[in-house]
Nucleic acid binder design. Structure first.
Length: 845
RNA sequence: GCCGGGGUGGCGGAACUGGCAGACGCACAGGACUUAAAAUCCUGAGUGCCGAAAGGCACGUGCGGGUUCGAUUCCCGCCCCCGGCACCA
């Protein structure tokens, strides 16, 4: 009988005792670094997590059997708000809450039998990890990659902290969903924009990443080529003022500048306040600006917010036409993109067009398709298609892409502008006004300014705060022993930075720490990453497509530039696994639809659970959890167990297949065995179609049952029957080959059961030592094949021919088949197509 | 609106390079075993029509066209669903 609970316990203990999955660098063997995104220790793993970890485990176990030195570690993304919120709610220290959760979840994962190198386990909330966040931060500070600036930031009222742009999802906080508001704060930023071009360009080399993720990253970086152009500002009285008072705009279409009939400023633009002060009614001016600013990003997103603006009363000079154009403030111009100012070209930009129509601003046509004549009066929409310049002075007649190049050069020559590249990507704000995170290792000294904490003083350890109210400033600001320090440079009294780092800092490099997790002189020994890096196979949720995955690519480059790693990209192959739903919704405690893996293990065993989540759908796809599916997986494992147990004595006595001569049924069985070995190997890697790999193994088992039945070695319903006696040595050898292959191939999916069966088959050293079974193309080759025959595109019959039959023989056989000849007789054969080994197609008239 | 992915039986899914659509599993039905049930083993099944049956015919991969001896697969046009981005100048 198959008793998963006993078997699983036995093998889990065995793996732990023998340190089965611990590894060291071994240059003599190819390495394989297999990683699943580490876990936030929320307290309970659900089957969605299980699915991700299973995908990695199947890969890791398979690659081990193929002879790779496999690094497969696991750890905890252990800083973050829920711990602090739990502390506020339950009066528990975040550290206790976090470590308790880790202990519980670790137990859950261990009961699943995942082949992790647990000795490399790390938790980002421990000083021996976050110390290196601080170390890296000081390196970035020294290089100008970490800097502080006052800026408008996204603020989550519920989390009481700042959010990076990437962390605002649909206008709400990525974690709690609360509507994000804007605040002006001093913020620590990481200069990811310094790598914008490289991150974008290198994405093309990530050929083993899903297209979807690459596209999302490209859109997020949002590179656009254009020009900055300065419109000299005219004095309030109308006369010109000196040249350095100008409004700089960014445009991708400088070729349309003859159609620029006005200029627009974002409500956040620095000149706005100056204009307000000079306005006849400054209060009213400011009120109108304030109203636009109040239309925050959320309001703008829910439905089209009307394009609004007002004339500042000032004018600027269009540097190409030399005409004065009015300067407006417009609510749809973004302060944080480009220069915060744009030229209004209503004839060729739909937004400007709508704005101009609203306020009766002049519309001018300066580009039109050749052979057409647009009139600005009856233009129904802006024309942004191809065309040739008109009414554009010396550039009239030029096609627009060419005009764009020439006019950019002209602007540069005149000193009125220059070509530039603009990114949507902004620097990454990492300051968080919360407790449970990495302290930023900076000391503010009244005389020396911002001074990084010296390496020898790292880590800056989080003080033990006992009271969490969730209100007011950063909790760290309320700990005088922490805040009050002397300046490392001058020794004067100074104040320690009280912001902590965004937890995405932690997850941006943990994959390198796994290579050398206990190093206490460096984040990692470069030699270890040189051996293990990059991660060969990385799997996790697609929700990290532009957060974690772009930050990690950035950090990798920083480590490279510091000289710790030599590779650019951290993840060679990325698999984004689909979520597991129940009742059509993501599993969550609040919805009460969580499937707890422990319950499933108690009922059916970890192996059945593992097999089911691998079989139910391709890894990338979202799936609905179905209880009966798990039962089916359990049923299959019992079926495997029975046939192997029943045949075990015969298999143990059987010889190898070498030198034997087999009958037709034996050859067919071997064909299935070898064909399955080939197919499953390819399905697991490179294809990672784990569901079809399982299906192939099920087919092998079905064939095995049929073969046994044929050979009379399996009485019907052999539960509890005596073990089979196989008289014919050839049959026994074939059974051995099939059974052993089956057990080995299934072992990455259901390792406990397969180790047990493998041992029962008389092997001492486990499935990894046995290696992935080899297939023989000869044994897998079909002897004869059934070929479908079509007449006029319709299936009319099948013929069986030897696999090496020639064109003519196949054609003859096809025509001779009675079901075919019935459709051919009396008609004229136009043509016969023989797709060798696949199909015969006969065309008749 | 733009970008990406997808639409196949009652259900999850398979079909790798244009070649038998529906592998494998779930659910279902029938049979064997059993006093009976469960479990197990075997068998059946896309839909419709004809036939007592073996079997035959037609239709069938979101919709409409096209290319081809042959299309789930390629091309054109459209519909719907999911994900991402969204006044980015």
């Amino acid at each position: 009988m198959y008793h998963p609970q006993e078997i699983e316990k036995k093998w889990q203990e065995f793996w732990a005792q023998t340190r089965a999955f611990e590894v060291t660098e071994d240059p003599s063997r190819p390495k394989f670094y297999c990683l699943e995104m580490f876990a936030y220790p929320s307290g309970h793993a659900h089957v969605g997590h299980v699915r991700n970890y299973m995908i990695g485990d199947v890969m890791a176990r398979t690659m081990r059997m193929r002879g790779f030195n496999v690094l497969h570690p696991f750890g905890w993304d252990a800083f973050g708000l829920p711990a602090e919120n739990a502390a506020i709610k339950n009066n528990l220290h975040p550290e206790k809450w976090t470590l308790d959760n880790i202990a519980h979840m670790k137990g859950q994962l261990q009961r699943l039998g995942i082949s992790y190198a647990w000795e490399r386990e790390l938790a980002t909330c421990l000083p021996n990890y976050y110390r290196w966040n601080q170390w890296l931060f000081t390196r970035m500070f020294e290089r100008g990659l970490a800097y502080r600036r006052r800026s408008n930031v996204n603020w989550c009222e519920s989390c009481q902290t700042v959010l990076a742009n990437e962390q605002v999802v649909d206008g709400g906080c990525w974690r709690c969903g609360t509507t994000v508001t804007t605040r002006e704060l001093d913020q620590w930023c990481l200069r990811i924009t310094a790598y914008a071009d490289e991150l974008l360009a290198a994405a093309e080399g990530l050929t083993e990443w899903p297209e979807k993720v690459l596209t999302m990253q490209q859109n997020w970086i949002g590179r656009s080529e254009g020009a900055r152009v300065r419109f000299p500002l005219n004095a309030a009285s109308g006369g010109k003022v000196d040249a350095d008072a100008s409004i700089e705009v960014f445009t991708t279409r400088i070729d349309t500048i003859y159609g620029a009939t006005f200029v627009m400023l974002a409500p956040e633009h620095p000149l706005v306040e100056q204009f307000a002060a000079e306005a006849p009614d400054p209060a009213e001016f400011r009120a109108r600006v304030a109203r636009f600013r109040g239309q925050d990003r959320t309001a703008r997103m829910t439905g089209e917010v009307e394009k609004e603006g007002f004339d500042t009363g000032r004018t600027a000079t269009n540097p190409f036409t030399e005409e004065p154009v009015p300067v407006w403030i417009a609510n749809f111009v973004l302060g944080e993109y480009g220069t915060g100012a744009v030229m209004g070209v209503p004839g060729h930009d739909q937004r400007d067009f709508e704005f101009a129509r609203n306020y009766s601003l002049p519309i001018r046509v300066v580009v039109q398709p050749e052979g057409e004549t647009f009139s600005s009066d009856d233009l129904a929409a802006a024309w942004d298609g191809d065309g040739v310049l008109v009414g554009s002075g010396p550039w009239s007649g030029l096609p627009w892409p060419e005009a764009n190049r020439q006019m950019t050069a002209e602007a540069k020559a005149r000193g009125t502008g220059e070509g530039t590249v603009q990114y949507r990507l902004k620097d990454w704000g990492i300051s968080r006004q919360r407790y449970w995170g990495t302290p930023i290792p900076i000391i503010h000294c009244p005389s020396c300014g911002m001074v990084p904490v010296q390496d020898e003083d790292l880590p800056v350890v989080l003080p033990t705060v006992t009271e969490f109210t969730g209100r007011g400033d950063s909790p760290l600001a309320q700990v005088p022993e922490f805040v009050n320090v002397s300046c490392p440079r001058c020794g004067e009294a100074a104040r320690r930075e009280t912001d902590t780092m965004d937890t995405f800092v932690d997850s941006s490099w943990y994959f390198y720490r796994f290579c050398d997790p206990h190093n206490d002189t460096l984040p990692f020994d470069p030699a270890t990453v040189a051996y293990w890096g990059p991660v060969d196979f990385y799997s996790g949720g697609v929700e990290h497509a532009i957060l974690h995955l772009i930050y990690s690519r950035f950090f990798s480059r920083v480590f490279r530039d510091i000289g710790l790693v030599t590779i650019d990209e951290p993840f060679t192959r990325l698999l984004t696994q689909g979520m597991v739903l129940r009742n059509g919704a993501v599993m969550s405690k609040s919805k009460g639809n969580v499937v707890d893996p422990d319950d499933m293990i108690a009922s059916f065993g970890a192996d059945a659970l593992r097999l089911y989540v691998m079989f139910v759908a391709p890894p990338e796809k979202e799936v609905e959890w179905i209880d009966t599916g798990l039962e089916g997986a359990f049923r299959f494992l019992n079926r495997v167990w029975r046939v192997v147990e029943h045949l075990s004595p015969a298999v143990r006595q059987a010889s190898g297949v070498a030198g034997l001569t087999f009958d037709a049924a034996e050859r067919a069985m071997r064909r299935r065995t070898h064909g399955t070995i080939r197919r499953v190997a390819q399905d697991i890697s490179p294809r990672v179609h784990l569901n079809t790999a399982v299906a192939a193994l099920m087919e092998l088992v079905n064939e095995l049952y049929a073969f046994c039945e044929l050979r009379g070695v399996r009485p019907a319903g052999f539960e509890g029957e005596a073990s089979a006696v196989v008289a014919r040595p050839e049959t026994a050898a074939v059974l051995r080959e099939a059974i052993e292959g089956l057990v080995l191939m299934l072992s990455p999916f259901t390792p406990h059961m397969c180790e047990e069966l493998w041992e029962g088959l008389g092997h001492r050293n486990g499935v990894v030592a046995a290696g992935w079974p080899e297939w023989s193309e000869d044994a897998a080759r079909e002897e004869s094949i059934e070929i479908p025959v079509q007449v006029n595109g319709k299936l009319r019959g099948r013929v069986t021919v030897p696999v090496d039959a020639g064109q003519d023989a196949i054609e003859k056989a096809a025509l001779a088949a009675p079901t075919v000849s019935a459709h051919v007789e009396g008609r004229q054969i136009v043509k016969i197509i023989v797709a060798k080994g696949r199909l015969v197609s006969i065309v008749v008239k």
